[in-house]
């Protein structure tokens, strides 16, 4: 597979002669990674959500550079448009402090850093070792245009797609049931007595 993918593209490749797409990809990757690091390290909770917007938007740009156009716009719509708004509402409803909150990180911060660095090191080593000589051929017609994605999705992936819509419906109904006021016992029996004895 590797030979096949790199074989029909006889142009010489190299790390030292990057193409324009590669340079753009690396620049956006640096921004994305920086925003992701700030998301998990910033002390201000609302800023974490806003840095998450930058990281997810950067990933959408990477999808565009990888010619997966439809996925990029879905990413912008769903992640940047709705998931981050949901997270901001969650922060608001749990009365997150606006300023710096010194207890944003827990006590096992250094153990977490160790685990993350070990994971990054080992995974990077494996990935670099495995795909050192592999190039993606981005020439030719785009592989992720809306037309291609739509026809593939509704021709070969119809059943998972419909199952997924049922899953979304179930998840939303579950979320509504779970977030109802606990005084109303008809939706979630067994919840109310526990609430009474806690308050």
């Amino acid at each position: 597979m590797m030979l096949l993918a790199s074989g029909h593209h006889p142009v010489h490749h190299g790390f030292l002669s990057p193409t324009g797409v590669e340079i753009a990809f690396l620049l956006v990757a640096a921004v994305t990674f920086g925003a992701a690091v700030l998301t998990v390290t910033t002390k201000q909770l609302v800023h974490a959500a806003l840095w998450l917007v930058v990281a997810l938007g950067g990933i959408a740009v990477e999808y565009l550079l990888l010619t997966a156009e439809f996925i990029a716009w879905v990413q912008v719509l769903i992640y940047v448009g709705s998931v981050v708004v949901l997270l901001l509402f969650g922060l608001m409803l749990t009365k997150a402090p606006i300023g710096r909150s010194p207890d944003a990180d827990s006590g096992n911060k250094w153990a977490a850093l160790l685990v993350a660095l070990a994971a990054a090191g080992s995974l990077l080593w494996v990935v670099v070792d495995a795909f050192r000589t592999t190039w993606i051929n981005l020439d030719g017609p785009g592989q992720g245009s809306t037309k291609v994605s739509g026809s593939i999705l509704f021709r070969h992936w119809v059943l998972p797609f419909e199952a997924l819509s049922v899953l979304l419906l179930a998840a939303l109904v579950g979320a509504i049931v779970m977030s109802r006021k606990s005084g109303d016992t008809s939706g979630a029996p067994g919840d109310a007595p526990r609430d009474k004895e806690q308050r």
Binding site: F33, A112, A119, A120, L123, V127, T134, W135
Partner: peptide
């Protein structure tokens, strides 16, 4: 494009997420 670039970015983002969790 070299495959290492997207794969490496994915590794870095995943590790960042592990640290955050």
């Amino acid at each position: 494009m070299h495959l290492i670039y997207p794969a490496g970015l994915a590794v870095l983002l995943f590790s960042t997420g592990v640290y955050g969790v």
